[in-house]
C-alpha cells in the first residue's frame, strides 16, 4: 500500500507551468529511423512557427465536430451567440447543450491548468459534476441532435479524464501537443543501448522467474522505477525540456510494458 500512497502524493504535487512557447512549436515529418535522441533533436530544430496549443487535439475536435454535423462550431447552434473556451458544454446565453468545441484540449475540457502534475482529486470532482450535467436522463425530452451532442460531450469528458489520469498517456498527450509522437503513432526504432540493455535484462529475468516469490521483488522494483520515471517526466515538463520529457516517456513506456509482463505472469502462476 505504501507504494500507492506515494503515487498519489506525487500526483498531487503541483509544479511549475509548462513553457508554453516550447509546446507551441510546430513539427513536420521526420525521418522515422533516427535514434531517439537524434529524432528529438530534429523535431525540436524544425520547430519554428507557433501553432495552437496541442494542435493534434485541435484537429481531433474539428473532425469530431464535423461528424456531429451541427454546422458552425464557434457559434451556438440555437441562439447563434458566440461561444468561447469557457463554454465547453452549454451555451452561456441560452443554456442549450453544445457540440464539443474545436478550440479545446483535454486540459481545457476539464478546465485545468496544462501542467503535467495535474490535481487528481480535481479530475475526480470534475468528472462527477460533468457526468451529472451530461447524463442522458437530463436529455430524454430533448431532440435527437441534442442527445447526440450530450453523448459526444460525455464521451469526450471520459476520454479527457482517462488520458489526464494516466501518467503515461498524459505525457504522451502533452508531447503530441508539442508535435512529438512517442506512443502508438511512433513508427520508428531506437538504438538506446543503456535503456534497451536494461529492458532486455529485466524481461529475461521475468521470463526466467519461477513463481510469485521471485516476481514480487521485481514488481516492487518496477513500481519504484515507474515512480522515478514519473518524477523525471514531471521535472522535464516543468523545465520546459520536451526532449528530456520525450526520452523519459519512452522509458516509461518500456517500464509499463515490463509491469504488464510481471502482472500477467503473477496472475497466471
Amino acid at each position: 500500500m505504501r507504494g500507492s500512497n506515494n503515487l498519489s502524493l506525487i500526483l498531487r504535487t503541483s509544479r511549475a507551468i509548462l513553457a508554453s512557447d516550447v509546446l507551441r512549436q510546430r513539427v513536420h515529418s521526420v525521418p522515422p529511423r533516427l535514434t531517439q535522441a537524434a529524432r528529438v533533436d530534429v523535431l525540436v530544430s524544425r520547430a519554428t512557427h507557433a501553432t495552437p496549443f496541442l494542435s493534434a487535439a485541435h484537429d481531433f475536435y474539428r473532425s469530431y465536430c464535423d461528424r456531429t454535423g451541427t454546422g458552425g462550431v464557434n457559434a451556438c447552434w440555437s441562439c447563434g451567440s458566440r461561444r468561447d473556451v469557457s463554454t465547453h458544454f452549454f451555451c452561456a446565453s441560452c443554456g442549450v447543450i453544445l457540440p464539443p468545441s474545436p478550440e479545446s484540449n483535454y486540459f481545457e475540457v476539464l478546465n485545468m491548468p496544462p501542467i503535467y502534475d495535474v490535481d487528481q482529486d480535481d479530475i475526480s470532482t470534475k468528472l462527477r459534476t460533468l457526468q451529472l450535467q451530461l447524463h442522458p436522463d437530463r436529455f430524454s425530452s430533448k431532440s435527437k441532435e441534442e442527445q447526440g451532442m450530450a453523448e459526444n460531450q460525455s464521451a469526450l469528458v471520459n476520454e479527457a479524464v482517462a488520458v489526464l489520469r494516466s501518467p503515461l498517456r498524459r505525457a504522451q498527450y502533452m508531447l503530441q501537443g508539442a508535435g512529438i509522437e512517442v506512443g502508438e503513432g511512433h513508427e520508428g526504432t531506437i538504438e538506446d543501448p543503456e535503456l534497451l540493455m536494461e529492458v532486455m535484462e529485466q524481461r529475461m529475468a521475468i521470463e526466467e522467474a519461477d513463481g510469485d516469490e521471485e516476481l514480487r521483488p521485481m514488481r516492487q522494483h518496477n513500481l519504484q522505477q515507474l515512480e522515478e520515471s514519473r518524477k523525471q517526466v514531471s521535472a522535464a515538463f516543468a523545465d520546459g525540456n520536451v526532449q528530456e520529457a520525450a526520452h523519459e516517456t519512452i522509458r516509461m513506456q518500456y517500464l509499463v510494458k515490463i509491469s504488464d509482463t510481471i502482472l500477467d505472469k503473477l496472475s497466471s502462476t
Binding site: L7, L11, R165, S166, V256
Partner: peptide, 15 residues
C-alpha cells in the same frame, strides 16, 4: 491485489 489494481488503473489505462 489492491496495489496491483491501483497501479494498473493509474498506469495502464492506455494499455
Amino acid at each position: 491485489a489492491l496495489l496491483r489494481h491501483l497501479s494498473r488503473s493509474v498506469f495502464l489505462r492506455s494499455e
